[in-house]
Amino acid sequence: MTFIPQDSLTEQIARYLGHQIITGHLKPGERIQEMRIASELNVSRGSVREALLILARRHLIEILPRRGAVVSALTEVEIRSLYELWFMLLKKVAMNAAIMWQDDELAQFTALIKEMGEYAERNDLERFYDKLSVFLTVIYPYANNSFMVQVMEDLLPTGKRCSYMVFRLGKSELMRLYESFVHVMDKVLKRDAEGAGQLVEQIGAEQLKLALDALRVQVAQ
C-alpha cells in the first residue's frame, strides 16, 4: 500500500498500519516500533503515537505496559463477539433503511452496488472492501444513533481482517457474499424490513462460519 498523505496525518498513518495488519504483513503479537514507523513514513513519533490510539480503538492492536503497541490476536471468542455485535447492528441499519430510504438515494445505491459486483467478479477483495466501506458510510446514518455508527466503523477493520484470513486460504466467496448483499438490498428497496433483517442475520452466520474455519486451519498450520 503506497503512503499518500490525505485526510489528517494521524488517520493516514492509522490506515497505512491498519492495512498491513489486515492483510497479514504485520502478524499477531508483533510489536509496532514507533521510531521505525516514524522514520519509514518521515513523520513525528507523536503522530505515530496518535495513530496507534486510533488502531487500538479499531481493535487491530493492543497497547501494553512496558511492551508498547502489539498487533492484536484473532481468537475464536473475539471473532464470535465481532460478528455477533457487528451483524446485530447491521440488521438494525438494514431494517431502518427499508423504512426510511428516499427516492433520490436510489441512483447512488445502484451505482455503488454495481461497482461492488464488478470487483467481486474479479475476486478483488481490496477494492471490493473499499467500495463496501463507501456504501456503509451511506447507509450507517439510518441507524439514527451516532454511537452505533462509531461502533460499526470501528468494527469494520477487524471484519476486513477476518475476510483476508479467509481469502489467504483460498476460500474467498466474494461473489456469494455480493449476491447475498444484493438480496438484502432488494428487500430494503422493496420496503421489506423484516426480510432484510432476516437476510442480514443469515449472512452474519455464514461469514462467522467461514472466519472460524479459516482460523482453525491457520492455528493448525
Rank of each mutant, 00 (worst) to 15 (best):
Gln20Phe: 12
Ile21Gly: 04
Ile22Phe: 03
Leu26Ala: 12
Lys27Ala: 11
Ser39Cys: 02
Ser39Asn: 10
Glu40Ile: 11
Glu40Gln: 10
Asn42Glu: 14
Asn42Gln: 09
Val43Asn: 06
Ser44Arg: 06
Ser47Glu: 12
Val48Lys: 10
Arg49Phe: 03
Arg49Leu: 08
Glu50Met: 13
Glu50His: 14
Ile54Gly: 06
Ile54Pro: 03
Arg57Met: 08
His59Glu: 13
His59Leu: 13
Ile61Gly: 01
Ile61Gln: 01
Glu62Thr: 09
Leu64Glu: 06
Pro65Arg: 01
Arg66Met: 15
Arg66Val: 11
Arg67Pro: 02
Gly68Asp: 02
Gly68Glu: 05
Ala69Met: 01
Val71Cys: 05
Ser72Trp: 11
Leu74His: 02
Leu74Phe: 05
Glu76Arg: 02
Ile79Phe: 01
Ile79Glu: 03
Arg80Ala: 03
Tyr83Ala: 00
Glu84His: 12
Trp86Ile: 07
Met88Lys: 11
Leu90Pro: 02
Lys91Pro: 03
Asn96Phe: 01
Ile99Tyr: 07
Ile99Trp: 11
Trp101Phe: 15
Asp103Trp: 03
Asp104Phe: 04
Asp104Pro: 00
Leu106Lys: 09
Gln108Ser: 14
Gln108Lys: 13
Phe109Glu: 08
Phe109Gly: 08
Thr110Lys: 09
Thr110Pro: 00
Ala111Gln: 12
Ala111Cys: 03
Leu112Met: 10
Leu112Cys: 12
Glu115Cys: 06
Glu115Pro: 00
Glu115Gly: 01
Glu118Gly: 00
Glu118Phe: 03
Glu121Pro: 00
Glu121Ile: 05
Glu121Gly: 02
Arg122Cys: 03
Arg122Gly: 03
Glu126Cys: 01
Arg127Pro: 00
Phe128Val: 01
Tyr129Val: 11
Lys131Cys: 07
Phe135Trp: 07
Thr137Ile: 05
Val138Tyr: 14
Tyr140Cys: 02
Ala143Met: 04
Asn144Asp: 12
Ser146Leu: 11
Phe147Thr: 15
Met148Asp: 12
Val149Gln: 11
Val149Lys: 06
Val149Leu: 02
Val151Leu: 13
Asp154Cys: 13
Leu155Ile: 05
Leu156Ser: 08
Thr158Glu: 14
